[in-house]
Computed example of a mutant assay.
Amino acid sequence: MSHTNLNWVLENPYVQQWHIDKTHIDHYQHVNNVAYLSQVENLAWAHSNSLGLHFADYQALNRGMVIKRHELNYHLPTHLGDILECATWIVHCDNKLTLKRQFQFICPKRNKTVFDAVTTFVCVSLDTGAPKRMPKQFIDVYGKACIK
C-alpha cells in the first residue's frame, strides 16, 4: 500500500518508512515507547533537512528549535518486523518563537494509526539556551512549510 493511499489526518505529509528491528523491541515484545520518541526526533530532522535547514545552519545562525512539550498517544502495539509509515507536518509557526509539528504513524498492513504526537518547539540561542526570535531563514523555511 502506497503511503498516499493511507488515512492521513492531514494532506501532503512528509513520510518515511520505519522498519522495526530487535533494537526497538522492549520486554513486552512490542516497540518501546522510547523508540517512538527517537523516531519522532529522526523524522523531524529529516523533514527539516528536506526543507533545506540542517544543523550546520542552526550553528551558523546561533539558533535552534528545542522541544518544550511532547504530547504522545500510543494507540496500538507494533512488533518486530512491522513496517510503519511515519508522517509529519508543521501545523503552527508564529514566525517569532514557537512552532508545532504533528506526527502520525500508520501500520499499512492493518491500515490503522498506531501512534500520533504533537511536539511544541521554541527557538533559542544555541550559546545561551535563552529564547530568541526566529531568524529570517527559519521563518522563510518553517513558516512557508506550515500547513495551517
Rank of each mutant, 00 (worst) to 15 (best):
G52K: 04
L61K: 04
A56T: 07
V66I: 00
H27W: 03
S38G: 09
N62Q: 02
V15Q: 14
E11L: 08
L80Q: 13
I67M: 13
P77G: 10
H79S: 08
D82S: 09
H47E: 02
W18F: 04
K22R: 13
H70S: 15
G52R: 02
E41I: 08
A56L: 06
N12H: 02
S38T: 07
N33R: 03
A46Q: 08
N73L: 07
V31S: 12
N12F: 05
H75Y: 15
A44I: 09
H47I: 00
E71P: 06
H19F: 04
N12P: 01
Q29C: 09
H19D: 10
L61A: 03
L37K: 10
L10Y: 13
Q17D: 14
N73R: 13
H75M: 08
N33E: 03
I20E: 07
Y74A: 06
Y36G: 04
D21F: 11
V40K: 06
H70A: 12
A56D: 09
L53N: 03
Q29Y: 14
L72E: 00
T78D: 12
P77W: 06
S48N: 04
K22T: 15
D82G: 14
T23N: 15
V66K: 01
L72T: 03
N12V: 01
L51K: 03
Q29R: 15
R63A: 05
L37N: 15
